[in-house]
Design a protein around this nucleic acid. Structure first.
Lengths: 282, 282
DNA sequence: AGCGTGCGATACCCGCCGGGTATCAGGGCG
DNA sequence: CGCCCTGATACCCGGCGGGTATCGCACGCT
């Protein structure tokens, strides 16, 4: 099975429409139809049900969609990591670290400083990404290592080391009545109907339903909190980036957040090992 | 990057010889040379150093060898799992469970019986494999789930659930002086120079050096123990398959062995989930 | 009922590229 | 010095991937 065939199949399986898939792939529709038929013949499996009005996935097609995406990610990772290994001159690797924009604002600079002070440190590029994107970045080779936050992120299929665990706080407008409290419970926070929790975008860019405002990043979030439109529960390290017009109140019964450093399980680079060692010693 | 190019490169990188690699691939040498050059041009990276007498891997080539193998495994897994999903008629999946031949001799039948009694059970094929092979089988799609034994097997990149933990025993000839002891320490076992520990084959089929005999499977192993040529430390569940001419003595300070059930992290099949649920409830 | 429309399948042609054979080039080693 | 083993180059051929044109079918609109 060639990666071209996989790319074609994944495109059709995602679009469920040969014409659109062909346009997305930059080829004409007939060769695409032929390629899919050929793939089906070679696998001895019907992947798509063509109903002359609608295209649907068979169970085997669903399996190939999931496995094919993983395989294409692995091929893309091989490509990217090879290019990076080659472009860094004398074999000196450069690490790409992925983290959610705005998260780990205390830990990250400490980690980068401490690692830079190591004798065999290499350049580290920081890739700020959206929620839940880190796993994908690690799998397809755009990143070598990531900072994840349990229990929000999944570490399925990754190697990890725990770094720090912290309690959470609720971030409120400074003038809000609850901002003076010593602490709040999750129930208290839920009982602030004037401050509904914000809605973050999903992986596909759409937003879940709910009363809270849609937010894309922390600057936007803090602006909306300052305007009294929302409140949010965050790890306490977010205090360092709070504006003067915001207040943080501990929420002891919110789940503790553990920051972990994670990397693809087959990684075997000296540089990565050094960064992980530095991180666990912080 | 096409899988054909990856297959070609991996062959050359493993053989470090264009002629042999071409023979292994079933093509002539010139097209192989050209394909590798083309791959290097497209990646913008030198992968191999041709010294007109020897071929060596560059650092970038070493990266592509490791990542390329993983990618080829992922593609092979997509192929195999799709074929299996299609061949099982109405989308009913069949599970393949990999385990080391001779290991988990108590647990495995219990697991299979308990799972078969579940209402939505599917057929389970048991794949008996060599030491350390399970990870490969899971990655390239020949198996869906495996029984691993910590701390011997690696669970890097796999999702796991712990099943049972057991102490280890040393298996001796029944007539050996130490066979009557209530227990032995690891130091005691090491101090039996007449019974050196056996040598298992590595992944590539070769054996490590040492005084003990070479063994391939448990039948052979027990035969050699009965002959007074070796002794071995095994999990205590091995008692059930001991012959009358063998004795087992507990070794309390040997590391405890934990049997875990493991599966590839992106698996999402109902049948697998059912088997794992059954296993954890045993 | 008839026609239009939108979809994937089919037919057919072309050019590129992957693969083959023959040969070259260079560096150890007898 | 020349042989030989190695990978590289030159050149040809056939197949296949991709294009355009067209078909067949089913739904929907009037």
């Amino acid at each position: 099975m060639e990666t071209r065939e996989l790319r074609y199949f994944v495109a059709v399986a995602e679009e469920l429409h040969f014409g659109r898939a062909a346009r997305r792939l930059g080829i004409a529709q007939p060769p695409l139809s032929r390629a899919i038929r050929q793939l089906e013949r070679r696998l001895g499996a019907t992947l798509l049900e063509r109903d002359s009005r609608a295209v649907t996935l068979t169970p085997a097609g669903a399996v190939l969609l999931r496995e094919g995406r993983a395989a294409l990610d692995a091929v893309a990772a091989a490509d990217r990591r090879t290019r990076r290994a080659a472009s860094t001159g004398s074999g000196e690797p450069v690490l790409v670290l992925a983290t959610k924009a705005g998260a780990s604002s205390e830990l990250l600079p400490k980690l980068l400083d401490a690692y830079a002070a190591e004798p065999d440190a290499v350049a580290v590029e920081v890739l700020l990404c959206g929620i839940g994107e880190q796993e994908r970045l690690l799998r397809d080779g755009r990143a070598d290592v990531a900072l994840l936050h349990l229990p929000f992120d999944s570490t399925r299929g990754l190697d990890t080391e725990e770094l720090v665990t912290e309690q959470q706080v609720v971030v409120l407008p400074a003038g809000h009545p609850a901002a003076g409290r010593r602490e709040l419970s999750m129930a208290d926070v839920a009982a602030l109907p004037d401050l509904p929790t914000p809605r973050w975008p999903r992986a596909d860019g759409t937003y879940p339903d709910g009363p809270g405002p849609e937010v894309r990043d922390h600057a936007q979030l803090f602006q909306l909190i300052a305007l009294g439109r929302t409140a949010v529960v965050l790890p306490e390290s977010c205090r360092t980036l709070l504006r003067a017009d915001l207040a943080a109140v501990p929420v002891p019964d919110a789940p503790a957040v553990t920051t972990v450093i994670a990397w693809p399980p087959h990684s075997r680079s000296r540089a990565l090992a050094g960064l992980v060692r530095t991180a666990t010693r912080l």
